[in-house]
Design a binder for these strands. Sequence first.
DNA 1: ACGCGTGCCTGTTGGC
DNA 2: TGCCAACAGGCACGCG
Length: 282
Amino acid sequence: MPELPEAETVARTLFPHINNCKFVSTDLLRSSALHPLSLPLSELEGLFVSGTHRRGKMIIVDLARKNGTQLEDVEKKLIFHLRMTGRLHTKDAPYDPDKHTRCLFNMLKPDGSLFCLLFDDVRTFGKIMLATPEILSQWDFWKNLGPEPLEITPEEFAPLLKNNCPIKTAIMDQSVIAGVGNIYADESLFAAGINPARKASSLSLEESSRLLLELQKILRKSISQCGSSIRDYRDANGNVGAFQNSFSVYGKAGEPCKHCAQPLQRMRINGRATTFCPNCQK
DNA sequence: ACGCGTGCCTGTTGGC
DNA sequence: TGCCAACAGGCACGCG
């Protein structure tokens, strides 16, 4: 399930495929894949890709229009949220969409050849949005998105944990910090030796600092390994990530803790499966 | 305003 | 072997 490192990997691997390429036409095969606040995708026609990046778990495509030979950025952005099973990849045109293809973008390379950018999504939770800054300012989720965990200091992190909810719930709350999901929440809490059920507000400055530093270390390591592939996740080249081989707790309930060898336990926090070591995480 | 539970959605898994 | 409930989980939404 794409979280921050997976979204970062998709944004990076997608870039060489679509940079400088022109949107020719769009075939939205499942209308619910389009975010309700989105502009119609027909407004993409004639625009070029000038960059790809990431915010939280979202992949953002920068758009530009061509003026002579110069690309001039426009304010519109094309945003993808992959949620659980979303995938972005390219195929040579013409491409016959399969049953999980939610949107097909016909695109033109600078050399004049046609290809397809595909948004596939088995479980249809993913969203596509074409938005101006004005639209983004009306989108609560975007407006409330917390800071990037790789761009804050422990001093900036600590005051974000004032809530009465479990610490795991707090760090997965996208309005607290952006990009952390179930995998990296469990892994960072284990690395920091903090029980996921602890009240967020009960963490000392020393504990919240340790949690942020461990989270940053894990996110960086996962990005360097192209993310984690549990089942569905692939980068834009169709490759799996490798960080799932470095998990300490996620999906390992019943297995011995790598520090104390006691069995890892499973519990449910805020409806989310949570694996932790009751001995090492206080 | 906050915290909690539920629905969305489909493919896979495991128990009977 | 076959059937079906449970599960996976990010986020919107409704409730108290």
